[in-house]
Simulated assay, not measured.
Amino acid sequence: MPSAPAEKRRDDPAARRSMTLTTWFAVVAAVLGVVLIIWPKLLPAGGPWVQLALGVLTLFFAFRARAIGTRSVEGYDGRVSLAAAMAGFVIMFFAGNAAFSVLSALGA
């Protein structure tokens, strides 16, 4: 017995606006995080912790944009939010390394 045809999604303008905003928030947080990774002297006090926070924000906004886009936006193309999510993982990796170095120096 064949299954019922899939219900076609409506294109919700509010969801499209939310998806666009969260995607751009993720991109901005990713750019700030990458800039702090490249030039860590810009923020000497608390730099690794700010980088970790920017990485978390990047991942949160990127995956939120992807969730909204796949559920409520017809013809959603998530390449920008996927790139932001990958940048968020890179930020978390390097910032985690820097934060671990700071914590290790405190323990020695």
Rank of each mutant, 00 (worst) to 15 (best):
Ala6Gly: 02
Ala105Asp: 04
Lys8Ala: 14
Ser18Trp: 12
Phe100Leu: 13
Arg79Gln: 07
Val27Gly: 10
Ala87Val: 09
Arg64Tyr: 15
Leu52Ile: 09
Ala98Tyr: 00
Pro44His: 06
Ala62Glu: 03
Ala4Phe: 13
Gly33Tyr: 02
Pro2Phe: 11
Val80Ile: 15
Ala45Phe: 12
Ala84Met: 12
Thr58Ser: 11
Glu7Asn: 01
Ser72His: 13
Leu82Ala: 12
Ala65Phe: 11
Thr22Asp: 15
Val50Met: 10
Phe63Tyr: 14
Met86Arg: 12
Phe94Ser: 00
Ile37Asp: 02
Arg9Pro: 03
Gly46Pro: 08
Met92Thr: 08
Thr22Phe: 14
Ala95Asp: 03
Gly107Ser: 15
Val80Arg: 07
Arg79Thr: 11
Met92Phe: 05
Leu59Arg: 05
Gly78Leu: 07
Gly88Cys: 07
Ala30Glu: 05
Ile38Gln: 00
Leu82Pro: 00
Phe94Asp: 00
Ala105Leu: 11
Phe25Cys: 13
Thr20Ala: 12
Gly78Ala: 10
Val102Lys: 08
Gly88Met: 10
Glu74Cys: 07
Ser72Val: 00
Gly33Gln: 02
Leu103Ala: 15
Val73Gln: 01
Asp11Pro: 01
Gln51Thr: 05
Ala98Cys: 00
Ala85Tyr: 06
Ala108Thr: 14
Ala4Pro: 04
Lys8Gly: 01
Arg17Ser: 13
Ala85Cys: 10
Ser72Asn: 07
Gln51Gly: 12
Gly96Trp: 06
Tyr76Arg: 02
Arg10Met: 09
Val28Cys: 14
Gly46Gln: 12
Ala14Asn: 12
Leu106Arg: 15
Pro40Leu: 00
Met19Asp: 06
Thr23Gln: 11
Val73Phe: 04
Ala53Phe: 13
Ser3Val: 09
Leu82Ser: 11
Leu54Ile: 10
Arg71Ala: 13
Ala30Met: 13
Ala29Met: 12
Phe100Cys: 06
Thr22Lys: 14
Ala26Met: 14
Gly75His: 01
Ala4Tyr: 10
Met19Phe: 05
Lys41Tyr: 03
Ala4Gly: 02
Ala83Glu: 03
Arg79Tyr: 08
Val102Arg: 10
Val73Cys: 09
Val31Lys: 02
Arg64Lys: 15
Ala67Asn: 11
Ala67Tyr: 12
Phe93Leu: 08
Pro40Ser: 00
Pro2Gln: 09
Ala105Pro: 00
Pro40Asp: 05
Leu54Asn: 03
Leu43Arg: 08
Val35Tyr: 02
Pro44Ile: 03
Gly78Phe: 08
Leu32Ile: 05
Leu21Val: 15
Leu43Phe: 09
Ile37Gln: 01
Ile37Tyr: 00
Ala29Cys: 15
Val35Met: 08
Lys41Arg: 08
Leu106Ser: 15
Phe63Gly: 03
Val34Cys: 06
Ala85Val: 11
Leu59Tyr: 06
Val34Phe: 07
Leu103His: 11
Leu42Pro: 04
Leu36Trp: 02
Ser101Phe: 01
Asp11Met: 09
Leu82Gly: 09
Glu7Ser: 08
Lys41Cys: 00
Leu57Arg: 06
Ala6Glu: 05
Arg10Phe: 08
Gly33Arg: 01
Leu106Glu: 15
Phe60Gln: 13
Arg10Trp: 01
Ala26Tyr: 08
Thr23Trp: 09
Ala67Trp: 14
